[in-house]
Design a protein around this nucleic acid. Sequence first.
DNA 1: CTACAAAGGTGAGGCTGTTCAAGTTTTTTG
DNA 2: CAAAAAACTTGAACAGCCTCACCTTTGTAG
Lengths: 207, 207
Amino acid sequence: MAGLRERQKAARERRILEAASAKFRSHGYRSVKIEDLAEMAEVSVGTVYNYYETKGDILIATVAMEVEEVITAGAPILANPPLRVEDAILGLIYQYYDHSLEYLSKEMWRTAIAHSIEHPNTPSGRRYAEQDRRLAAQVTELIGALQDRGQVRQSLVASDLGALIFNALNQAFVEFVKNDDMTLAQLRDQIAAQILPIAHLIAVNSD
Amino acid sequence: MAGLRERQKAARERRILEAASAKFRSHGYRSVKIEDLAEMAEVSVGTVYNYYETKGDILIATVAMEVEEVITAGAPILANPPLRVEDAILGLIYQYYDHSLEYLSKEMWRTAIAHSIEHPNTPSGRRYAEQDRRLAAQVTELIGALQDRGQVRQSLVASDLGALIFNALNQAFVEFVKNDDMTLAQLRDQIAAQILPIAHLIAVNSD
DNA sequence: CTACAAAGGTGAGGCTGTTCAAGTTTTTTG
DNA sequence: CAAAAAACTTGAACAGCCTCACCTTTGTAG
């Protein structure tokens, strides 16, 4: 069985993460002090820093949980993609988008994305980048599945096309979280405008 | 003529910006203190903050000068685009990329991009976004010019295609600045892999 | 030229993320 | 079980961004 020390460690880390997730959402990332998290998690400030390297890392850890869910939510679509090319691609993208604000505020997303760009070589920066890669891989996988079905031109390289589409959906999402007034519906429209023409171009019966 | 006060103000702002540009590049953004800039510009810390709202804003101001040059450098290609669709699009993108590190380090780019995402509603955040919009508009303009020449399908909406291509070149650039080991040549290859298939699809004689 | 007003500069101090030497708890050793 | 070692927690102290009450300089009116 796990020793006392080990259990206490796990419990402390969990309490810190729960405190962060709750406070960041309710009070906003900026205005939450490490001291606040320490108090809520019933540890000292120094202990928080034994579990996470920086405040940004704590945020990334909370965001990572959500991204993991998004990736999981994408799997069913890959297993059984909608019939039409555009429905398949947009369906996957909408699935991502619709999950994105379940536990995270736009401010949290902005800060997390900014952190991952500014500190790409920290463990948390790498972690975020890795999850991005997995999302892009899902898109690539979907393209591949559509090619296997004979719906997307075989001449196209699935991974390059996947990267292109992922870039588009990712960038549109960044614009979305940058603008507090933008709705999910508007985000969908934005990405559809970019994706639909491409979907028709890459489909075999395009002309 | 401009009064003494006005001239002194302009001179101080210029000295601060020059100090920032020099020190950020030579010592790295992180390790330069506002105090250092103030000393080099021969003003007080408080004065620095009369001209720029935050340290990030000072960086954005230096980056903005470079982006302005990049936009200027793109104009000649728009005026007289290369003959083939893929050469035109990649030519414009390479022009952007080749200018990007003339006065800015990768760390400066990372920090500036992160800042613009994290603080989209500050003047400097808006300024950065506006320059992005102008770059995307150049790409759109190029697509439009190729359509006028009859080289790109008329059925495609230039602005949506421009946005798609800009997203791709922008995201590839972010990956480039996130990875200190990546070379400009590798960046070119990355974006070419995404753009070339698209260039063939959108060209009129594609099939 | 003097007096007053407006504009702007100044730097000590506040705030908050982060560190680290000292103390405490858990585990291991004999 | 006692003692020693290892692992971990703690919070005071530090660093650097930023503010603001006060002061100096410039412009203007009489």
